[in-house]
Simulated assay, not measured.
Amino acid sequence: MKSVTVTGPDRIEWVEVDEPEVGPRDVLLQIKACGICGSDAMYAHMGGIPPRQGATPLGHEPAAEVVAMGEDAVGVAIGDHVVIDTMRFTDGLLGSGGAQGALTPFVVVKDNEPGVQLRVIPKELPWHVAALNEPMAVAHHAVNRSDAKAGDRAVVFGAGPIGLGATISLKAAGVAHVVVVDVQPSRLEIALEVGADAVIDSSSEDVSARLIELHGNAPEAFGNEGRPATDVFIDAAGVASVIETVLATAKHGAVLTIPAVHKRPVEVDFGAILMQELDIRMSMGYPTEIFEVTDAIIANADKYAKIVSHTLPFDQALEALELASTPGAANKVVVVFE
Rank of each mutant, 00 (worst) to 15 (best):
V116T: 14
L274A: 15
R153Q: 13
V268N: 01
V4Q: 13
G35L: 10
G23K: 09
A229M: 03
A229Y: 05
T7Q: 09
G23S: 07
V293P: 13
S208E: 10
F270T: 06
S325A: 15
M87N: 05
S241V: 13
V129R: 09
F89N: 01
G226R: 09
G59R: 08
T311R: 09
S186K: 04
A196Y: 01
T311A: 03
E338D: 14
S208R: 15
I243D: 02
P114Q: 10
K123A: 14
D152S: 06
A68V: 04
T167Q: 07
G98I: 05
S146I: 01
L323K: 09
R264E: 15
L312P: 12
A77V: 06
M46V: 01
G70E: 00
D40T: 08
G95M: 11
M1A: 13
K149W: 00
D235C: 09
G75M: 06
A209V: 05
L164H: 08
G158C: 12
I31K: 03
P51H: 14
L214V: 05
T294R: 00
I243F: 13
R210P: 04
H60M: 07
F157T: 01
L188G: 06
D80Y: 10
G226W: 12
T86H: 00
R153D: 01
K303V: 15
I297N: 02
R187W: 07
L164A: 03
K251C: 06
A64C: 02
A240D: 12
P259S: 08
V143P: 04
D91S: 10
L211A: 02
V6L: 08
V268T: 01
V116A: 07
A172P: 10
E134Y: 10
F314G: 10
P62I: 10
V83K: 01
D201W: 10
V179R: 00
V239I: 15
R210W: 04
N300P: 05
D111G: 03
L211G: 03
L58E: 01
F157V: 04
V129I: 15
G75W: 05
A33S: 09
V232Q: 02
G223N: 07
A305K: 07
L214E: 04
A236L: 06
G223R: 10
D111N: 14
H60D: 05
I200D: 04
M1L: 12
L256H: 02
I234T: 08
P51G: 05
L188C: 11
V82F: 00
E213N: 10
E220S: 13
P185V: 01
V334C: 11
F337W: 11
I84T: 07
V67L: 00
T249L: 06
A154W: 02
H60G: 08
Y286D: 11
G226T: 12
L214D: 05
I121L: 10
E338Q: 04
I78G: 00
P327G: 12
I290D: 03
H262M: 06
P185S: 00
V179S: 02
E134Q: 11
L93E: 04
L93T: 14
E21R: 14
W14G: 12
L192E: 11
E19S: 15
I190T: 12
V107E: 01
Q184K: 10
E213I: 15
A77L: 11
V74R: 12
D10W: 00
V261H: 15
